[in-house]
């Protein structure tokens, strides 16, 4: 993991040497790792950008206590692709392939906190795709939701909606 982060930081510091770039922005993860990014990347993150705007650009170090150094590189990678106009189906497929269910949820929260609409929509679709064919029990576990039906209520509802219970994947207990 530490290696991944440092390689990510290397690639970012290379782009930093780009002579056309203005002052870089330092994003500080919750576990105090500093990620230097181009101002254009920061623009993609509405929360960060509004923070910069409020201080007239004087503050360029932004603490992101809710986001870990594990998640932030993914967010930055997505934003880089986004401003380069290189968000393709192939990129998105590769991007999520690396992520397990917990990571997708963490990134979803990060995207929500940073207010990155495109990433948020994309991850919503990813989570929806992952649960679409799953059982009711799986979805409860996935989101940590307590079943507050009485057994009778649930049985009745399931009977009414029986037609929606076809084609459901068997639960995979290994996930999560």
């Amino acid at each position: 993991m530490a290696e991944e982060v440092s390689s990510q930081m290397n690639s970012l510091s290379i782009s930093e040497t780009n002579p056309s770039s203005s002052a870089t922005i330092s994003l500080v993860s919750g576990d105090d790792i500093v990620f230097k990014v181009e101002p254009t990347i920061a623009k993609e993150m509405e929360t960060v950008q509004s923070f910069i705007d409020e201080t007239d650009g004087k503050i360029t170090t932004i603490p992101l206590p809710n986001i870990s150094s594990h998640d932030l590189p993914y967010v930055i990678e997505y934003c880089e692709k986004s401003i380069a106009g290189k968000i393709t189906k192939e990129f998105e497929a590769e991007f999520v392939k690396k992520l397990n269910n917990e990571e997708v949820k963490e990134l979803f929260l990060a995207a929500n906190y940073l207010n990155i609409k495109k990433l948020l929509d994309f991850l919503s679709q990813v989570i929806a795709d992952r649960i679409a064919n799953k059982s009711v029990e799986y979805v409860r576990r996935y989101f940590g939701i307590e079943n507050d039906f009485t057994p009778e209520e649930e049985a009745k509802l399931r009977e009414e909606l029986a037609w929606t219970f076809t084609g459901v994947d068997p639960d995979d207990e290994d996930e999560n």
């Binding site: 979803f108 929806a128 679409a132």
Partner: peptide
Amino acid sequence: LLPQELIFQILLWLPVKSLIRFKCVS
């Protein structure tokens, strides 16, 4: 755990059939 209002954002992306099945969640 995701906050409820964020979960509902996700549900909007589900196919109708799944969405109706998940009425049985809670």
